[in-house]
């Protein structure tokens, strides 16, 4: 599923004019986990990547149930999008030729495996800035569908 230009333009870190999102994953027996993420980008036209820095339960969930939903949280500005699809963490050490639904692990890690060096969160206020950034890998979601979370049309298929 190819995302449109508006989506591709918005899926970047908030410090570069993008958005903060929530990532929802769940255990194999259905216990959800919903956490905010600020290190986000589009990878090509069909994948969304998020830095795996402090994901604890997310990692456990994706290891047993590789699917997720990414919802735009801030600033919304009419971008009522929920992206859903297969999701995994491409960890450092992964075979560079491993292919996750069209995303090659080596290319994902090369481009987004050291987010702090590429896009340091210098704009973040001190009381919410991470004290240290240690990235273990890249959470990668293949967009299979996009639905609206806009309250009066929630669930309407966009793509």
């Amino acid at each position: 599923m190819k995302m449109n230009e508006e989506m591709l333009g918005a899926l970047k870190t908030i410090g570069t004019g993008g958005v903060v999102v929530h990532l929802t994953t769940c255990s194999s027996d259905g216990i959800p986990n919903t956490v905010g993420e600020r290190f986000i980008a589009a990878f090509g036209e069909e994948h969304i990547v998020i830095a795996d820095m402090f994901a604890q339960k997310t990692k456990v969930n994706l290891n047993e149930n590789p699917v997720g939903v990414i919802t735009v949280a801030h600033p919304v500005k009419g971008r009522y999008w929920a992206f859903r699809g297969p999701c995994m963490i491409i960890m450092w050490g992964e075979d560079e030729n491993f292919d996750f639904h069209g995303a090659r692990a080596g290319e994902v890690l090369k481009e987004w495996g050291d987010w702090a060096a590429k896009e340091p969160p210098s704009e973040v206020p001190p009381d919410i800035r991470p004290p240290a950034l240690c990235q273990r890998g890249v959470i990668t979601l293949k967009v299979d569908e996009v639905y609206s979370w806009k309250p009066d049309e929630s669930g309407r298929k966009i793509l």
């Binding site: 929802t24 769940c26 027996d29 259905g30 939903v69 919802t71 309250p151």
Partner: peptide, 18 residues
Amino acid sequence: AHIGTATKAGFPTTIVVE
């Protein structure tokens, strides 16, 4: 909040209530 829900088999759906 963003409200994460799921089927018993673990397929997620998130809604947002402002």
